[in-house]
Design a protein around this nucleic acid. Structure first.
Length: 861
RNA sequence: GGGUCUCUAGCUCAGUGGUAGAGCAGCUGACUGCAGAUCAGCAGGUCUCGAGUUCGAUCCUCGAGGGGCCCUCCA
């Protein structure tokens, strides 16, 4: 090519770059309790972020309250990763060294040892009874002590001159009284257990050790622990207990579809880092060793220019006051009541590690600071946990990290602290102690992971979440809407092939496209607004409704634009996959065609289903038209020879009464398993229709056969058939179990529907009547206002003179009018009703009575 | 007791200085041989109460009351 002098001017206008900055992602940050823009620590344009999640203490099975944390933040994480495109390093700890774990592990271990020691049933019984009696004695002693303490503390509290301290002392007394109640309950439970154990032997037959221990295991374990607990020194006992529940926890998380963290940090594996951490904090002058333990020095921490209690500053003072009230503070190892343990000196029967301060184990708060610092360093983008951990756990964590990084000038270890709201069930927080918990496994028995995730997506992550009937109903409605949407769109796309239909856009197509664009904008705005998943779900629901309307408008064959429908459905799918409600690409590893599920679909099967549906449509059409039997026979013939024959299926007619068989015309090209089952079905159905025709059955019987095919045979094959008003059925593939459940639920609902409807009607009518009667019993407006005004306008009824008889003017008059209007508005429903019909109240009474009688009649039937 | 948040339809919650909205639940209706799907409509509110600021308050201020949460272990 030659360079010539002729230069061509290329015309291109660059799009304006101003205002290119997109709206920020806002996150609700616990440091300030408001939504603030999210900026990665690595820089505003960086996509690299770090996240430390406060993980489980693995002492028992996890319940849905725990799932609230991990599932909700999994959704948040997926949005950050898959929607906003951040690369997130997610670290989660597992607390496997903890008071509860130690106690339970030791007891379980001793109990197991005892069980396998080959004691006779008599010995076991004797020991169990002793154990329970010891438990009862201890309980009684404790109650007595507590009651004495209540008496002592309350007199002391009364005498306390300082107002603030007195109120704390009084609160303590109240708490103590609550605790006494709790102990008394435990005592009663122990007494019941004792009776049960004694009954086991007395019943005559030999009591076996298993049964005895099943009743008294708690007490036996406690007794064994008291006697032998200090001798348990083998660290594998504790590790094994934690490992079991850690494994179960991770299984639960997998079952819920939560992405695993990138790094898992176990306390037991980070002891050296923790010791180094504590050492440095001591070196920085913000902790001190005391009698084999190490405490964090909150006073010095403040003197060094740090802020203690950033997340819950209000709790700090109160907690200190409460701690001062502790009777044993003078003898404490702490310098200040706010100080907390970084390292605890070992007690017998506990796992312990060597340290510069003697044998011991880490305090509760230090693990998170040390492990997160070890993996991530001196600045985290995000730290998450349940809202109950705000104080003291997370505040102490922050203090420890700032103290550790003091000489790096660290004043803010975490940029965004996110706390999820608790899970409530019937108005109460789900918790182990309230015994109102549902384990994750139990929940997964009633709902699948998709349903649970959908339920979580319908409520904001940072507010209290309701787990109840209402939430379940809304989730089910939403799930059905989504399922029907995907099914409807799929059917519509099948029936509006791009190859055979005009694709030019009409007004409806432009409108639908605009709806899609608007939905995309709404979803984006909702996600930026603190990852507001309920708002996203609402936006998707609006789009689905728009698509439904579009499909209704475009009901003539081929009118709907398959490409546009696909666009809408693809967007909904994409967002759902971000939430993890449908499997997304990031949940599989490797090339997708290697995954086992990819090959399972049998593309050719659709043709046979189409043939079956079309044949059934024809049969239904003939039956509804009360056509002659010969026409049905002709239809069967057309199916066998024409349709199926054209698809390479050769039907072998059976002798009368027998089932026909079929074979592939080309043996080298045999249909797959799914296709085969469809062909079996269509051939059998054709036989059935022919038999009905030849016995000249009534049209109703033919329709019944069609219904049975739809409601039973196809359901079992995972095919959902829906008859449309135009006489054409559409089919969708679905899970047979789900469909059977739906059918069963509908049948149950239908059975009780009449009664429920009547009950509802009675209740509503009675309520309305009660309300109106209440209004009727009210004094008249003028009587009601008589304490404020003395005279009223004849025509309008409004007050004209005040209580003293002075004429109302200016502002006072306006006020009077407002008073009047308010009172009038309250009475409006009644006056309106009476204006329509002066006898309305009596009529309503009669109606309620009538409904009640109907209901009673139903009850006796 | 202190702190803090909250009070809007039967339930869960949006919302705005110009007398209120959504979803679910309820009730009608359209379509329909049945089932399903879908659409349309209706009803339901002293916006906790009281006082103040304002031309005007559900919204702002103050007070009262109810509820939640935190101040101890918890996800």
């Amino acid at each position: 090519m030659m360079a010539t002098g002729s230069k061509v001017t290329r015309e291109w206008f660059p799009p304006a770059a101003e205002g290119a900055q997109t709206a920020p992602l806002m996150l609700y940050n616990s440091f300030v309790d408001e939504k603030v823009p999210f900026v990665p620590a690595a820089g505003p344009t960086s996509k690299q972020i770090t996240w430390y999640a406060c993980g489980p203490t693995v002492y028992d099975v996890a319940h849905m309250g725990h799932a609230r944390n991990y599932l909700s933040f999994d959704i948040v994480r997926r949005v950050l990763e898959d929607y906003f495109g951040y690369n997130c390093l997610m670290v989660m700890n597992v607390t496997d060294v903890d008071d509860k774990i130690i106690l339970r592990a030791r007891r379980n271990f001793l109990l197991a040892q005892y069980k396998s020691s080959g004691k006779s049933a008599e010995e076991v019984k004797e020991f169990t009874i002793e154990a329970i009696q010891a438990g009862i004695a201890k309980q009684q002693k404790k109650v007595a002590e507590m009651e004495a303490m209540v008496a002592k503390d309350s007199t002391e509290a009364e005498a306390e001159p300082d107002e603030k301290k007195r109120s704390f002392a009084l609160r303590k007394v109240a708490d103590l009284q609550e605790a006494v109640k709790g102990e008394a309950l435990k005592g009663r439970q122990a007494a019941e257990a004792l009776a049960a154990v004694q009954a086991l032997g007395a019943a005559g037959s030999s009591a076996d050790a298993e049964a005895l221990l099943a009743v008294g295991s708690d007490y036996v374990a406690e007794a064994l622990d008291k006697a032998l607990g200090a001798n348990v020194t083998d660290p594998t006992v504790f590790r094994a207990h934690a490992a079991k529940y850690e494994r179960e926890f991770l299984e639960d998380m997998d079952a819920l579809g939560c992405r695993r963290p990138d790094v898992l940090t176990r306390v037991s594996e980070y002891i050296p880092e923790i010791i180094e951490y504590v050492t440095r904090i001591i070196g920085n002058g913000m902790a001190y060793a005391s009698n084999g333990s190490v405490y964090f020095d909150t006073q010095n921490f403040r003197s060094c220019g740090h802020t203690y209690g950033k997340l819950n500053p209000w709790a700090v003072g109160s907690a200190a006051l409460a701690a001062e009230g502790e009777s044993n503070f003078e003898t404490s190892e702490k310098r200040s009541p706010q100080d907390f343990a970084l390292w605890k000196a070992a007690k017998p029967g506990e796992p312990a590690w060597e340290s510069p301060w003697g044998v011991g184990r880490p305090g509760w708060h230090i693990e998170c600071s040390a492990m997160a610092s070890s993996i991530i360093g001196s600045r985290l983008d995000i730290h998450t946990g349940g809202e109950d951990l705000r104080f003291p756990h997370h505040d102490n964590e922050l203090a420890q990290a700032e103290a550790y990084y003091h000489h790096d000038g660290c004043k803010q270890w975490v940029n965004y602290f996110l706390h999820c709201g608790h899970l409530h069930i019937e108005g109460l927080k789900m918790s182990k102690s309230l015994k109102n918990f549902v384990t994750i496994r139990e929940a997964l028995a009633s709902f699948n992971a998709r349903q649970l995730r959908l339920m979580f997506c319908l409520q904001p992550w940072n507010k209290t979440m309701m787990y109840g009937e209402q939430s379940r109903t809304e989730m089910k409605v939403r799930e059905a809407q989504l399922r029907n949407f995907f099914g409807n769109v799929d059917a519509a796309i099948r029936n509006s092939s791009v190859n055979t239909n005009e694709q030019r856009w009409t007004t409806e197509d432009f409108d639908l496209n605009n709806r899609i664009l608007a939905t995309q904008a709404a979803v984006d705005a909702a996600l930026r607004d603190n990852i507001n998943t309920p708002a996203v779900m609402d936006a998707l629901s609006d789009l689905i409704k728009a698509v439904n309307k579009y499909l209704a408008d475009k009901s003539e064959p081929g009118a709907a634009r398959a490409l546009l429908l696909r666009k809408a459905a693809a967007f909904v799918t994409r967002i759902l996959s971000v939430f993890g409600i449908v499997d997304g690409p990031s949940d599989r590893l490797g090339f997708t065609e290697m995954s086992s599920s990819a090959a399972s679909s049998d593309a050719a099967a659709a043709r046979y289903l189409d043939a079956l549906a079309a044949f059934r449509d024809e049969v239904r059409g003939l039956a509804k038209a009360k056509a002659a039997a010969a026409e049905l026979v002709a239809a069967v013939g057309r199916l066998r020879e024409g349709v199926l024959g054209g698809m390479g299926v050769k039907v072998e007619l059976a002798a009368s009464g027998d089932r026909s068989s079929w074979s592939a015309a080309d043996p080298a090209n045999r249909p797959g398993a799914t296709s085969t089952s469809y062909i079996d079905t269509v051939v059998a159905f054709a036989d059935q229709v022919q038999a009905l025709a030849s016995s000249s059955a009534a049209p109703g019987e033919v329709l019944a056969a069609c219904d049975q095919l739809r409601d039973s045979t196809l359901v079992d094959m995972g095919v959902r058939l829906e008859d449309r008003p135009d006489g054409k059925a559409v089919w969708k593939l679905d899970d047979p179990a789900t469909m059977r459940e739906e059918i069963a639920a509908r049948a149950a609902a239908a059975a009780s529907a009449a009664r429920k409807k009547l009950e509802g009607a009675v209740e509503r009518k009675a309520k309305e009547l009660e309300k109106l009667e209440g209004l009727a019993a009210l004094p008249s407006i003028q009587e009601a206002l008589a304490d404020k005004y003395s005279k009223f306008d004849e025509a309008s009824g409004e007050p004209t003179h005040d209580k003293e008889g002075n004429a109302l003017e200016g502002k006072a008059k306006d006020k009077a009018r407002k008073d009047y209007e308010k009172a009038a508005k309250v009475r409006e429903p009644l006056s309106k009703k009476l204006a329509e019909d002066p006898a309305a109240l009596d009529k309503m009474k009669a109606e309620v009575e009538e409904l009640r009688q109907q209901l009673a009649a139903l009850g006796t039937a």
